[in-house]
Write a protein that binds this DNA or RNA. Structure first.
Lengths: 209, 209
DNA sequence: GTCTATATGCAGATAGAC
DNA sequence: GTCTATCTGCATATAGAC
């Protein structure tokens, strides 16, 4: 079917452009060019720029949110789960280097709309906290709220992707290959950092809670 | 001087609009409206949207980058310095809630231009690493690269601001006041998290390095 | 389904009166 | 310095031929 091929070409191009430039910065002309088709075909397949954008937006979030829940639901120790989520996020971001800035930008561009979209995504904070609490009760980790642990983890993984031009310049003289290596090593350094924070015996009162 | 007052009104309005919407999303009309003046006055004071934007952009980065270097240069233990940087960043982001998304978006929108801008900002990664290494040699903390420690710290502080619509919905049922409280407590939880990660006695080979 | 041509609206920028 | 009126170009979107 020619039509399916064209639709896929459009989605591929739209994904690339929207995620690099965001809704505001993206141009239908650029998407058409990258898809190798005419501009008006975009409107034939997707009524408007808005509709096309929403297709990409939903797809992008589908890459991330369900992933954490899925891994957290499996049978494994919390520290192993964290290892795997970190690894998974590094993979996704490595394959989609502009995804972090896109997500942060679009989450905030129309928060109301985004919140509605979240309702249907089946994330359960109570379940996440239970997973953490069980390990605390078993004496495996120090107490911590899921609302702290998970943002800590995601923040540490995400920032070097989101702030690449800054960090690559400051710490690596702009060397792109070195930076890729650094990003790859973050799988281990971030996991280790979290593990140390969670398993240190609390000798003083400064316990995170 | 009326002219100074007007210039200030423009800058205040431009700061607000640009930081909320970014260069692409901002409209000169909205800036003029918020400043309570006519659109063409914007062009009278600042030749173009681009020039006005650059004024805001430089100001915004001036809020952050020099701050870390300044604190790191003072005489204090590393763990105290980290406490103070975390506290300082929470303050800045609390007063400018859209700053994180703005910085991340604009860093990536024109990386080449941004890199040039960075050259003049006097950040010294060797110095930062030395500060860390001295504490390592003194036996106060475990070995870690500054290029890991600093992004970890900034990532953990920044994410709850940048992803507020997401996290507030998931973990706090959308309650804005609770979330403000949570953000405020991050001063302690993040500092404590870092401290535990850095000071845990390495019992196994999984040391971050 | 895919193209060319065109309509429509808006945003940045300028001209010129006051 | 500040305003109104206007120009110019561009981006989304549609009409209509093939």
């Amino acid at each position: 079917m020619t039509s399916e091929t064209t639709e896929k070409k459009i989605l591929d191009a739209a994904r690339d452009v929207f995620i690099r430039k965001g809704m505001d910065g993206a141009r239908m002309q650029e998407i058409a060019d990258e898809a190798g088709i005419n501009k008006s075909l975009l409107h034939y397949y997707f009524r408007s720029k808005q509709k096309l954008f929403e297709a990409i937006f939903q797809e992008a979030f589908g890459l991330l949110i369900p992933e954490v829940m899925k891994i957290f639901k499996e049978e494994d120790s919390l520290l192993n789960k964290i290892d795997r989520v970190v690894d998974r996020y590094v993979n996704v971001f490595s394959n989609n280097p502009f995804l972090p800035q896109f997500l942060i930008g679009e989450i905030n561009r129309e928060p109301e709309k985004f919140v509605k979209f979240l309702q249907d995504s089946g994330i359960d904070p109570v379940f996440l906290q239970n997973v953490v609490d069980k390990e605390v009760e078993a004496g495996n980790i120090n107490p911590i709220k899921a609302a702290d642990l998970i943002p800590n983890m995601i923040g540490m993984v995400l920032l070097p992707f989101a702030a690449r031009p800054l960090l690559q310049t400051i710490f690596f003289h702009g060397d792109s290959e070195q930076y890729d290596e650094y990003l790859n090593e973050r799988r281990n350094t971030v996991s280790a950092f979290i593990k140390q924070a969670l398993t240190r015996k609390p000798l003083d009162s400064n316990v995170s809670r």
